[in-house]
């Protein structure tokens, strides 16, 4: 079953000095439960804009998408209930404790009220938050915050998870931990869409790699598919091949 279906997603901004700027044009893709889709592209390619449209932060200029059958234009709140969004621009509320944060996200995203306590305890244990669960977020180290951030993203147990450049700014160990989390969540049959410009990350984690350049989806498929189509072995070469018009 397809959990995420994007159809001709297009986003045009009006810039006061440049006029109309098309950030994303006719982006279409689909994902199934348990699939990891990687949006691979350089800076300014349109990855973040695409993910922000899926998260209903931005409204598509045309086209639409359905998350778990909910249309993101017609029913944005249902989309947000079905989705966990993680990015560097979605910080935690600094004055709440780690435990309060998880409880708040579970409750506001409509996780069944009777099971919230149990769910929070489960997340605290799973992400190693127990030691600092009652400390305010503002007092936590960046590593601790990262764990709480991931936990709050999945607090309401959404079937679809969107990670926007999740390893940017992390050290090697933290980045590996993040990759491990994504892999585990995928094994739990979550649909995961994440953006990156790190080739090795995409190679390791993605079932499907969508290559984006200047707002256009150039190619989408498994790594093997891309290798066959381009005749290149390394993803880096595959990417350059598409970006330079070889596709």
């Amino acid at each position: 079953m397809e959990t995420v279906v994007a159809e001709d997603l297009t986003k045009t901004f009006y810039d006061e000095s440049r006029g109309e700027v098309c950030a994303v044009e006719n982006m279409s893709f689909a994902c199934r439960a348990g699939e990891v889709l990687g949006l691979l592209g350089s800076n300014g390619a349109g990855k973040t804009t695409t993910l922000r449209m899926l998260a209903t932060i931005l409204r598509p200029s045309s086209g639409t998408a359905r998350i778990m059958g909910h249309d993101l234009i017609r029913d944005p709140e249902a989309v947000r209930r079905s989705l966990g969004f993680y990015s560097t621009s979605t910080a935690l509320y600094p004055r709440l404790t780690a435990r309060e944060t998880l409880e708040f996200f579970a409750r506001v995203n409509r996780y069944p009220a009777a099971r919230i306590e149990e769910r929070v305890s489960e997340l605290v244990g799973r992400f190693g938050i127990a030691e600092f669960q009652d400390a305010r977020v503002e007092k936590l180290s960046s590593g601790m915050r990262q764990r709480v951030s991931i936990a709050r993203t999945v607090a309401h147990d959404p079937p679809v998870l969107v990670f926007d450049e999740p390893t940017v700014g992390l050290d090697v160990i933290a980045a590996l931990e993040m990759q491990e989390v994504i892999r585990t969540l995928s094994e739990e049959r979550k649909t995961i869409i994440f953006s990156t410009h790190i080739m090795s990350e995409a190679e390791k984690l993605c079932d499907t790699i969508a290559i984006i350049h200047r707002g256009h989806l150039l190619a989408s498929g498994t790594l093997e598919h891309h290798r066959r189509c381009t005749g290149k072995h390394y993803l880096e070469d595959v990417f350059v091949h598409y970006v330079r018009g070889g596709g």
Partner: peptide, 14 residues
């Protein structure tokens, strides 16, 4: 300033 505005926008609230 705290970058929590976008966090709030991703909540399942109108």
């Amino acid at each position: 300033e705290r970058s929590t505005w976008e966090t709030t926008l991703t909540l399942a609230a109108s």
